[in-house]
Computed example of a mutant assay.
Amino acid sequence: MFDVDQYLKAIGFAGQPRPDAETLRTLHKGHLMAIPYDSSWNAERGISIWRDVDIDVDAVFDDIVIGGRGGNCYELNGLFRRLLDEIGFDTAVLSAGIRQVDGTFGPDLEHVFNRVELDGRTWLADVGFVGPSYLEPLVLSDDEQPQFGSRFRIARQDDYRVVERKPQTGDWQPVYRFRPQARDFQEWSGDQRELVEFAQQLVGAGTVIRGRAFDTGQMILIGRRYLEVDNGHDAMRVLVEQDELDRVVRTILRADR
């Protein structure tokens, strides 16, 4: 059963939460550090990955916050949105197409995250994306926004906005693109041929994605490809040995850092 106090304790938040920018930043980063992303739970859903995008908050809370399993984008961001609503933030649902390896973007409804209206500004809050991405919410603005050694900006592309990241070395790279208008969960129902075809590719590939943030960066495991981002420095390697892979998985899922 959803419980604000239990939730705050689980993500390491102390004190009285208030609907302000400082609280939003602290909750966002704390959530990413405390609760992992884990796509292994998608395997049982098959091509119906987005079937339950409008989550049963109480059941998912019991599974993830109390039970300790990781979650996918709409589970983690759905829980976080409920937490923000309970505290008094003004939230809405957004969706995005994630940049693929070939440089294209996935379907618009592929990824589910949150919008927060606060102090006359729009913020992006996303605790359900494995990364590399932002540890603290981004303001929907053309300005560059530095975070923990990386820089972020939100570029305009026709009627889309594109979140872009620049590490310490290297060029700007898109993370995902989105439209800033709020989404309705009904948009995920009905004939979603593009989304189903995309899900078939994901399920067919069978690649498990896991990730967790730490104080200055993120651990990202896609199959056997392990990326660690620390203060804006990206270090990628392939985990060939099973023992090393198992150790990294344990570290991500249990926060043994």
Rank of each mutant, 00 (worst) to 15 (best):
S95F: 01
Y160F: 14
W188A: 00
D230V: 13
P174V: 12
G128T: 08
V203A: 04
V127D: 13
G30T: 08
G170D: 06
I252M: 04
F214D: 14
R99M: 15
D38L: 02
R82T: 04
I35S: 09
V203C: 03
Y176E: 03
F148S: 14
D108L: 09
T207F: 10
L221G: 04
V163N: 02
W123T: 00
G70V: 01
A43N: 07
D191F: 05
V65I: 15
D108P: 06
D126Y: 08
P180D: 02
T104L: 07
T23H: 13
N114S: 12
R161L: 10
I220D: 06
M236H: 05
L221S: 06
L227Q: 15
G232L: 10
D230W: 12
G131Q: 09
A96K: 02
E110P: 06
R81L: 08
R25A: 14
S95V: 00
R237Y: 11
D3M: 05
I252D: 12
R82Q: 05
P107L: 05
V127S: 14
G70E: 02
T104H: 13
V163I: 14
E86L: 14
N72F: 12
D230P: 13
S133W: 10
I209Y: 15
G88K: 03
G12N: 03
L195R: 04
L94I: 04
V130I: 11
F198P: 00
P174Q: 08
F185L: 01
T26F: 10
E244T: 07
G190W: 03
T23A: 12
Q157R: 12
A125Q: 14
E241Q: 07
G70C: 04
A182T: 01
V175H: 02
Y160W: 10
V203N: 01
Q192Y: 06
I252V: 15
H111L: 06
A14Y: 00
H233D: 14
P174Y: 03
E164S: 06
D5H: 12
Q201L: 10
W123F: 14
H233E: 14
G120P: 07
V229K: 12
Y160E: 10
H233I: 15
R151W: 14
P132R: 06
R210Y: 02
F148D: 11
V112E: 09
W41L: 07
G128K: 12
P137D: 11
V163E: 02
Q147A: 09
P146D: 11
F105L: 14
L76S: 04
V238A: 01
G131C: 12
P19V: 03
R115Q: 11
G46C: 02
R156M: 05
G71C: 07
D143N: 08
D184E: 06
F178S: 10
R69C: 05
P132V: 04
Y176H: 09
Y134I: 08
S48E: 13
A155H: 10
G46N: 03
P146R: 08
R224P: 12
E136G: 03
I55A: 03
V53F: 03
R224F: 11
R25G: 11
R165S: 13
L76W: 09
